[in-house]
Nucleic acid binder design. Structure first.
Lengths: 357, 357
DNA sequence: CTGTTAGCGCCTTCAG
DNA sequence: CTGAAGGCGCTAACAG
């Protein structure tokens, strides 16, 4: 019998002629199949697989052989049902095509995979309502933990969703410490705008515009607070010089173009993030404005493109990949049962480049 | 009893003071709990949830009430175990930070989510060995289907992996029709290089370099075939003028710099993709070469950045987002049981811009 | 229209 | 060191 196996083996572990039959019945090889074939109990097989309990190396080896021969693979689902661990984590982000988020996601994915976790990606497309739908869809029974990036949802909606999960980490957001650990930049978008305005004011600009990220719950301050704060410092940011934009290049371009045409008196513009700022940069040049001579621009994430356009974009840098890695690490800690609140803050540092030297 | 519920309700569906207790016992509310509370059988509750079978609107309503009151959510895991459907699909891609792939991924995610599927993201970091590990990790029991993008694996390794899955779609790859539907560009990387070379030759270039994507199984032709093909057309591409690079900006930059220094006689360079080409562009400018006067450059994906650098990059355009959408649609068809082979081919069209006018 | 019976594939007791 | 029973939470297939 042993000697006849090789043939079967090949067609099972390789793409063979009996593929069609398999597709019909989907005859999964189970623990019991292995047990029967090996002449042991299911429990023994289970122990071999999980490397748990004491087993004679003899049976262990024999069972391993049978497992390999049959091409047995334990059902993650069945295991999840009984252990209550799925080895998956959810990652909720606004837009995977935004380099800022794809870098964070990469950091997360690469980190959790080391511990055999998989990432369930949920893209909210920068929409609060979609974010809610998506969060609602991710049941606690399908993930061991959740990382929520730059949530656009108000607390009343976000917090109950987080509460459903065993382990949560939020990025760019503050929530009650019992609910989640947190990784974020120290300034937040509001402070970043203030930093930018100060920088521009110091450079002599008096008419500064601000194209901010539309109704984002990640904003630690709202526009009026920012204006107020700056006014206190003698920097004058008119309310009408502040408009919102969705955080994509195209929206930055469209918004920026209309904005610059409406307020030609502006000598500087702050973008809510790099994509917006880069859109504005293109709009400015299409309008015949010289950057930075006629118009200075400051962005906000230091994505690759920021350094490669002409003139290169002055922006704020933060370790995106590392933020993803750390968020993942904090989540793994929580999943492992260590529920102590942890918080990682990163400074955003201003990178002075051509658009606002 | 009914009148006392509201209090409990709030602390269950909202973040309440008994969070701590819940975290301990993780006392999931089950179907039976609902059934008991509603005074019906579990089956009835199941029917209400799945909207299946005939149920008096009276009991339906009552059960729905209890479900809402208890904040019951069905266990995806348990359901998956019995239905053999997880409502998840796997997406294997080389690098999520490459805009080319993040756009495809976005298309996939957004499409499958309409049908309540979630995406498991597996990033291989452009490494064949990691891709193998990752594919091995994605068990057929955890996904209903799989989309593999630009696999770097040879057939001997890739095909058996695909065979394990019920439904597969490959992007930028050809596999036996029984195994998977396919979405890809009509040219493939090899043909794209040939198109580029022809274009450059026509523009008068005689010394053309080629920085290609390292040992990628997505190449329909290898370098020697390309050289041969071009030679037949009277276009001379020396073997030593062809070097490989990993498909990232930084590698493109480093490789490009060394390459240009070693072969200053080149008047044009073809990049394996946009990131590589953009890296070369920067390297060329850092070396004091004027583009396109001293050196023409052609890229290959038409990512956003390509159009925004100076001079803008001549490249090939293909509908990345749509490719993701279609791949997802083909996969959903297969998951639904329609296993007919389908193939979508997209033309890559040359976008003539500043780096190679 | 509703309930009963049997598992899905695995692991956690508890006995040998 | 190994096995037998029971159940995780849900639904399919039958009853009624």
């Amino acid at each position: 019998m042993e000697s006849k196996r090789p043939t079967t083996l090949k067609s099972v572990s390789f793409f063979g002629e009996n593929v069609k039959q398999m597709t019909n019945k989907r005859q999964r090889i189970t623990l019991d199949d292995v047990a029967r074939e090996a002449g042991v109990s299911a429990m023994t097989v289970s122990r071999v697989i999980n490397n748990t309990g004491r087993i004679s190396s003899e049976t262990r080896e024999h069972v391993s052989d049978v497992i390999a021969r049959l091409g047995y693979r334990p059902s993650r689902t069945a295991r999840a049902l009984v252990t209550n661990r799925t080895y998956m984590i959810g990652v909720v982000i606004p837009d995977i095509t935004n380099p800022y988020f794809s870098e964070i996601t990469q950091g997360v994915e690469e980190t959790v995979r080391e511990d055999d976790y998989s990432v369930i990606l949920a893209n909210t497309n920068e929409s609060a309502s979609r974010e809610e739908v998506v969060l609602n869809h991710i049941d606690a029974s399908m993930v061991d933990g959740l990382i929520v990036c730059s949530s656009r949802l108000p607390d009343e909606i976000l917090l109950p969703q987080l509460e459903r999960h065993q382990a949560v980490v939020v990025v760019n957001r503050k929530v009650p410490e019992e609910l989640a650990s947190s990784v974020r930049t120290s300034y937040g978008l509001g402070f970043r705008a203030i930093q930018s305005a100060r920088y521009l004011a110091k450079a002599g600009h008096e008419r500064i515009g601000y194209v901010y990220l539309g109704r984002s719950a990640a904003m630690t301050m709202d526009i009026d607070q920012i204006i107020e704060q700056l006014a206190a410092e003698g920097i004058f940011l008119k309310r009408e010089w502040c408009v919102s934009s969705r955080p994509t290049w195209q929206h930055g371009y469209d918004t920026g173009k209309a904005f610059l045409e409406k307020f030609p008196e502006l000598t500087a513009v702050i973008g809510g993030n790099d994509l917006i700022a880069l859109g504005i940069l293109r709009a400015a040049r299409d309008l015949g404005r010289k950057v930075p001579e006629d118009l200075a621009i400051i962005g906000g994430d230091d994505i690759l493109m920021a350094s490669q356009v002409t003139p290169p974009l002055t922006t704020f840098r933060m370790p995106k990949h590392e933020i993803g890695v750390v968020a993942a690490q904090l989540l793994l800690k929580r999943i492992a049962g260590d529920m102590t609140y942890r918080e990682h803050l990163y400074d955003e540092i201003l990178i002075e480049r051509g658009t606002a030297p």
